[in-house]
Design a protein around this nucleic acid. Structure first.
Lengths: 241, 241, 241, 241
DNA sequence: AATGAATGAGAGTTCATTCAT
DNA sequence: AATGAATGAACTCTCATTCAT
């Protein structure tokens, strides 16, 4: 749960001197988040952040030693506890992995519906991580290194127990999280909203349905004799992605 | 096919005065691509690009009016023709959409295997598009607006003709391209390589296999009565993505 | 006599609330002296001084209206009374000036031996005076304008009475104090300690010995016919100092 | 010989574009020297230097990577070759050390008379070295470490050969250079000019005369029985320097 | 076609100083 | 008497862009 959700609107109304100093870091981060999302990290100046937080430039440096630290703090605040929860859920699950995914997706869908700020920090990360190795490092250690192995392990156990088909767990994990990433990227960055709006619910249902059938053992035989990659008759075409 | 692939090694050997002016723009773009990938757009100076292309700073401005134009040109060069090919393939296809996907994925896999520069431009786009609305716009109009509707349409036709299950075509499209995006992001940006290396082949096979079964009509009934999203008994958990 | 020498170690132990407010200025100056010597005036922040004196930044401004005032106070405290003493000694002396110098040098040597903080304030002055015209002014009026004329006068009287050779008293005065300055500069600023350590005693003895003979009347004749400056046969050489 | 002396006045008149780029570094250094002397290093902004050199701020950074490098370059330029010359003279001298000193002092006096910029760089060093350890290091290695040992060695040889009295060579060396330092400090920093103006000639003559007699062997006996330092009857007095 | 010296706006950061409490 | 949050002016340094040659 990000601080963003809980920041009280009446703060702005309070006289500056009466505002409580303990809230300052969160106020600054809230301002920074909005600006970073709207303009990107590099295009946002510390001055702008300060103004948005109703402070002077110098005051920002009272709480954050340097501009990049705002990014770091934002990520930490935004993903705190989340990854641990997901990893725990995946690790503790017994039985068919699809049940665990169903539950996890359900929780994600619920969040998305309830919280308008859902996806703000992920969007920020997607925005800034490519140009900030430091940020990538943080996100990797605090989120990916926890969740991905748990997911891979869940799938591997599912294969071993015969609950799902024999697929490479690492690649399958990428197929599981991929659609959400694509949705985020297409919607939030390229501005390609589906006709009926940003529908996390709908996406998650579709993906679950696909996985449910795609992972089922009964489909095993059918899939086995198709290996279309490297089809020799393919004509030469430009790069794809 | 990017120019990167075709740039002749002997260029470096030629004396500067003998180099042909027509090749200048591509030499500059080649230099820019490498630097942008290694350091990011903002961290790369025009001076660095000029030096790498064995030119003076001023000469770069002879060919590109401003720094961001390098990015634009890079994207155009990198994805030129590719999107049209893919869109045509998807649009012209008759019958089960899965055959079309199989063919497309096969072509992608082949590219990935043959061309070491495959994914360089996509990676750059992923790097820079979040902070460059202009770049996002270009990529959207030149690639996404061509390919995505074609894919959605293909899936819709597949549903109408009874070749695949009744899934939301827009969402399904996102599920189709998602895993590749995830693969790119995790591998190239977070440095999370699968145990056995960056394996486009393996990923594509897994994804195809999942889709093959996931889209199959026989799985229709099973999927229909599961709607786990909004499960009322779900506890409150932190944000997920 | 600086406060530095007399500051009681138990101050640090006393609880802050029990510390007597009257001691505050000296505590602040003590802290400032150490920091200024270690880092220089400009590199030392008011915050650092406050922390070292176990106070808040604001409290420093309760006692000193501005940062440069710390420097001024430090100098006044450090050289208070000293100059008057030396001037009085030189002025009241009757007879051969060398006796007065001997006595003065003896006192300086004794101080240097007894007090480890000897030279701290002089060192500070040497450090900061070049960039602070205000400080230079203070030091000039409070020290130099008292001592130098007294010394020049002493020497002039010595010449008039025939106790010492006929040398320009102003220049001779510079020759009298110069070696101590050089010693301070080389030792404290350039870190060039003589092989056997910082030896004020030894320096003063050498200088006294030199002056004793150098000023003696018997040497008059020998010195008179050497005027090597402007020797026409001198080759052109680079600037010297 | 500093560049300061040779900078041609007509440069200012030339159109900016016609000024020769090779002269730029020296023009910048000339401007910086004047400003540093007038205001001190810290109080001088790069903008001011640029304006004085008739350039933009950015252009200064074309030639000097950072502001402190101006100081370093200034010192190197100002003392280049000088130290080597002096050291060579002192080292190569045979016979009575006083002859070598006489010669050296004569050269210094000549310089002082001929060149109005004489002492500018030394004055700058005196100004800035106390707050710049880097500068102190440079000056020490490039000047002091060459000249001082040569002087000490000269004196030691003089003692050994019986040309001068048995005095500690290290301390005596400080007594030899001290008066010049004092002169510089008093004149240039405290603004205490002797009644008849800044008279290097006069100072050097006086000092030579003092040394000539002070170092003479005949004075040996007289000096030996005076050891006034640590006189037990001395009253307690404040610190001296 | 090409150079590279020059520009100057603008960024991040520091810190002496103030003032409500 | 004392605090420490807040200010804001000033500084160093960067770099996309221009232009005389």
């Amino acid at each position: 749960m990000t601080k963003t959700e809980t920041s009280k609107p009446q703060n702005a109304a309070r006289s500056k001197s009466r505002r409580r100093p303990e809230e300052r870091p969160d106020e600054i981060l809230d301002a920074a988040l909005e600006l970073f999302l709207a303009q990107g990290f590099h295009r946002t100046t510390v001055e702008q952040i300060a103004r948005a937080a109703q402070l002077s430039k110098g005051a920002v440096y009272l709480y954050f030693p340097a501009k990049p630290d705002l990014l770091v703090a934002l990520v930490r605040r935004g993903v705190g506890g989340m990854a641990d929860h997901a990893a725990a859920l995946l690790r503790s699950h017994q039985g068919d992995p699809r049940q665990a995914l169903r539950k996890l997706f359900a929780q994600i869908g619920q969040r998305a519906q309830q919280n308008p700020n859902f996806a703000k920090v992920p969007r920020l990360i997607l925005h800034e991580v490519p140009t900030s190795p430091e940020l990538a490092e943080i996100y990797r250690t605090e989120v990916l290194d926890k969740v991905l192995p748990a997911l891979v392990d869940l799938l591997a156990r599912g294969v071993a127990a015969g609950h799902i088909r024999r697929l490479d767990p690492e690649m399958t994990a990428r197929c599981v999280v991929g659609p959400m990433l694509a949705h985020l990227l297409l919607s939030e960055i390229f501005g390609l909203q589906p006709a009926a709006g940003l529908q996390w619910q709908s996406l998650l249902e579709t993906q679950l349905s696909l996985l449910d059938a795609g992972l089922a053992r009964t489909a095993d035989a059918a899939a086995r004799h198709t290996n279309p990659v490297n089809d020799p008759e393919l004509s030469h075409v430009p790069d794809l992605l």
